[in-house]
Amino acid sequence: MEAIFSKEIQDGLNEARLAALRKSTRLRVDVDGDLTPVLRMWKSGFTTQAGGPSLRGLVDLYDGSVHLFQCLIVATEEEAGEMQYEFKRATAVTGKAALDFERADDAPVGLIADGRQPEPTAGR
């Protein structure tokens, strides 16, 4: 069954839906220090409230204070009060730098020092 509402009622329902999404989300997009709330996110993109800042290019995606992704985005369409963005690239952020070599599974985790000072070399 499909219900048809007047334009005023539909606008009110859309505004209530957007308000609920704004309250329930912790996701944010950071563009040069400006934070924009993310209403919904899926595998290939996300939405923000329409009428907000126009986003394009390289952005950072956060869940609260946790940096999740560095994304290259492009705006696709505006629908029902939401602006949709698609990921061209979404790179997960890790806590350490990428290695440029393969680490062996049995490699030592660290070196243990014996606490002795090295002896000075003679003749220098």
Rank of each mutant, 00 (worst) to 15 (best):
Y62W: 12
Q49E: 15
A75R: 10
Y62L: 07
A122C: 07
V29K: 02
S65H: 06
M83A: 13
D114R: 03
R26H: 10
L35D: 11
G110A: 09
G123M: 09
I112T: 13
D30T: 01
A90I: 00
T25Y: 03
F87S: 01
L61W: 04
I73C: 03
D11T: 05
P37A: 02
G12P: 04
A50E: 10
S24R: 11
D105P: 08
A104I: 01
Q84K: 15
G51C: 02
D106E: 12
T91C: 12
E78P: 00
I73W: 00
A16R: 07
H67E: 08
G95N: 13
G123K: 10
L55Y: 02
A113L: 05
S65Q: 15
T91M: 12
S6Y: 03
S44F: 09
F5W: 04
E8M: 03
T91G: 15
G123A: 10
V59S: 02
G45V: 01
A80R: 12
G33C: 07
D32F: 10
F5M: 10
G12M: 05
D11N: 13
F69P: 04
P108F: 03
F5S: 06
L68T: 04
R17N: 13
V66C: 07
T121E: 14
G81D: 00
M41E: 06
A92I: 08
E119C: 06
D105K: 07
L13H: 10
V66Y: 13
E102D: 11
G33F: 05
A107M: 11
T47Q: 01
T48F: 02
M1P: 11
P53T: 08
Y85W: 00
Y85D: 02
S24C: 09
L55H: 02
E79N: 09
G51W: 04
Q49N: 08
M41K: 06
M1K: 09
L111H: 10
E78S: 10
E15F: 10
L61M: 08
D63W: 03
N14A: 04
D60K: 13
K23Q: 15
T36G: 01
E15M: 09
D30N: 15
L18P: 00
D32I: 04
W42S: 11
R116E: 15
F46M: 12
R116P: 03
L99I: 05
G45Q: 00
C71T: 02
Q10S: 12
E2A: 14
F101H: 12
K88N: 14
L111G: 06
D30Y: 01
I73F: 00
L72V: 11
R17K: 14
